[in-house]
Design a protein around this nucleic acid. Structure first.
Lengths: 113, 113
DNA sequence: CCTACTGTTCGATTTGTATCGAACTGTTGG
DNA sequence: CCAACAGTTCGATACAAATCGAACAGTAGG
């Protein structure tokens, strides 16, 4: 039809992004892991990202990428037959100061048991 | 059966709260508004809180309170025949430093139009 | 070239969340 | 005490999101 692997995908401007959308995108453990990985390891291909969450089908993973992208948190740009995923840190920091750092520096809970 | 208006409600310890739960609780505009109001105006009765979101039925509002409470963000304590809702700011700040302040200080987007 | 590869999109199913009316219960004012 | 009040809980319905297989389309390596 129209779209394929290596197509230009729409990226919202951060000015147009609302906080609830960002918080929602980050509220899923798999997506949060991915953002953490991108923050730590810099731009990665989709396949490299996916290595973080093994056992997750490509379509599911791609859906998570879409959610993060539409929330303005990541870029997803074609590069040959792959795609490069980048955390939009500087832009997010300008739009929501201190938010990403707060999220990224948070530690896991020790369970209620 | 068991429960009524003025009953002791369970409040999780912040140690046992996970970040995704907090982010999810804050990702709803109505709940975010409520947290903002509590931050600005201090402890309020449920009825006072509800004045923020007029037209919302009590049961719906109560459900939002439950979500925020289970995420460790607010307390909801009996007081006579009313209830006092309190933002657990200090505890949340200790568990997730800078997170609440980042959320509270964020400004609305000017829409894509 | 043409085949294998990377990753998105589509469509269907399942799961979870939002919403709201109704029932219910401790509390207090008269 | 009894009636009115404040809010939670329950149950049903509607809506949104997660998940996954299959189909698809550029790209590049042989």
């Amino acid at each position: 039809m129209s779209n394929a692997t290596t197509r230009r995908l729409p990226h919202p401007e951060l000015k147009d992004v609302e906080l609830p959308a960002v918080l929602f995108a980050l509220s899923d453990p798999a997506r949060l892991d991915l953002v953490r990985q991108l923050a730590a390891q810099g731009p990665l291909t989709v396949a490299q990202c996916q290595a973080t969450e093994p056992g997750v089908p490509k379509s599911t993973f791609s859906h998570h990428l879409k959610t993060l992208r539409e929330a303005g948190l990541i870029r997803n740009d074609p590069a040959g037959r792959q795609r490069i995923v980048t955390l939009r840190k500087a832009e997010v920091d300008e739009r929501f100061p201190a938010l990403l750092d707060a999220v990224l520096s948070s530690s896991p809970a020790h369970p209620p048991e």
